[in-house]
């Protein structure tokens, strides 16, 4: 099998959401490929595709979780092959929640799930979250990024309030801010000084990787 065929097999195994298939593909690939290549060009590529298929309605949330679980098992299998200190940890720590006054939960939860599946440590603080709870959680877990969701035009301002508070607390420079939710736009993100805006869950993963990992 060529390298590309092995990558494709790894990727397809993740997309199948079946742990045994992923483990089988990893066992086969580790004889030919570097473990870091297996992870980056095989397993992670498959996980990215899972996100795209979820957005298109071809795969569903349980599949995303099963794929993430299978990928985690595959990476674990490779840990012994990786050079000392090369075991990849989390991609970053993210606090995610819906701003105060807004009780919408589902979109934000999907974003949390997708970020978690992609390898971030996610602390979902729920919905209708007071500004101070965001700040306290960011400090507690030493977060690299905060995700702020709002589904109503009336609650969008809550995103700005969190950013203002981050500045007042003197921690804005070390925490990236991502905003999202139906009424949020790139123009709104620019206006309130957020670092990025994400249109949907898979874009949230992509933007988080860009900002925190330079990917």
């Amino acid at each position: 099998m060529t390298k590309d065929e092995l990558f494709s097999e790894l990727s397809n195994a993740v997309i199948s959401c079946k742990k045994d298939k992923v483990l089988e593909a990893v066992e086969k690939a580790r004889r030919e490929l570097d473990p870091s290549e297996i992870i980056d060009k095989g397993l992670a590529a498959g996980m990215n595709e899972v996100g795209i298929l979820f957005e298109k309605g071809r795969l569903f949330l349980p599949h995303v979780m099963m794929a993430a679980d299978a990928m985690t098992a595959g990476v674990k299998l490779l840990e012994d092959d990786l050079p000392a200190g090369a075991v990849k940890g989390k991609l970053g720590t993210i606090v995610n929640g819906t701003v105060e006054g807004d009780v919408h939960d589902i979109g934000k939860s999907i974003v949390s799930t997708m970020l978690q599946s992609a390898g971030f440590e996610v602390h979902d603080v729920g919905r209708d979250v007071p500004v101070q709870v965001f700040i306290d959680k960011i400090r507690e877990v030493d977060a690299d990024m905060v995700g702020l969701s709002a589904l109503m035009t009336t609650t969008l301002l809550g995103q700005k309030e969190v950013i203002t508070c981050l500045k007042e607390e003197g921690i804005r420079d070390r925490v990236k801010v991502m905003v999202g939710g139906s009424p949020a736009t790139q123009a709104w993100a620019d206006k309130i000084g957020a670092d990025c805006y994400a249109e949907n869950a898979s874009e949230a993963v992509m933007k988080a990787k860009e900002l925190l990992c330079g990917a």
Partner: peptide
């Protein structure tokens, strides 16, 4: 279910 999914309790 969002919380349950995140805990892999599908």
């Amino acid at each position: 279910p969002g919380d349950l999914m995140k805990a892999f309790k599908i």
